[in-house]
């Protein structure tokens, strides 16, 4: 699977951009004195969004991606979008959201979608099965992944 360009794009392009954008957003918060404007509530909303991105990320890394996992990723993406709207609605009541931060937000909102689309392209048959089309049956089990990407993640972790 490491020979697949989409896996390489996910690991060495999408993930680093997400990390850089997340760190840049934290710098923007710091520059606008978040502790005296929107406070810890906004930090908690961001941690919630981290969990919402972390669930599909860990699922892709450690579980066998099938229709169930893809459906979970789609639902969590929509929840993440709703949380992002809540975050900006709250932030703009008391804190200046600069054009730079808005630009950073655009990355943070779209990177999960890039990740989701990449996973869908890697498991196209299971994605089609979700909608009852294609040759594959819906697989709705949760099992540890045996793919190279999973082994890669595990070996890098160790």
């Amino acid at each position: 699977m490491l020979n697949d360009p989409m896996v390489l794009i996910l690991m060495y392009f999408v993930m680093p951009i997400w990390l850089i954008a997340g760190f840049a957003d934290w710098l923007c918060h710091r520059a606008t004195h978040i502790e005296s404007t929107t406070g810890a509530k906004e930090s908690l909303i961001h941690l919630l969004m981290f969990v919402e991105v972390g669930i599909p990320l860990l699922a892709a890394m450690f579980l066998e991606v099938n229709s169930l996992i893809i459906a979970l990723m789609m639902v969590v993406f929509l929840i993440h979008e709703a949380t992002a709207i809540w975050d900006v609605r709250y932030a703009t009541t008391a804190r200046t959201v600069s054009p730079v931060e808005q630009h950073v937000h655009s990355f943070l909102e779209m990177i999960p979608l890039m990740g989701l689309v990449s996973v869908v392209s890697l498991h196209w048959g299971q994605f089609l099965a979700l909608f009852g089309v294609g040759a594959l049956r819906v697989l709705a089990s949760i099992s540890l992944g045996s793919s190279t990407s999973c082994r890669w993640a595990t070996s890098r972790r160790l």
């Binding site: 609605r89 703009t92 959201v97």
Partner: peptide, 16 residues
Amino acid sequence: LVPPKARRNKTGETTM
């Protein structure tokens, strides 16, 4: 969780 002294505006008023 929320600073007591923070000035509250309508949503979007502090967006540049």
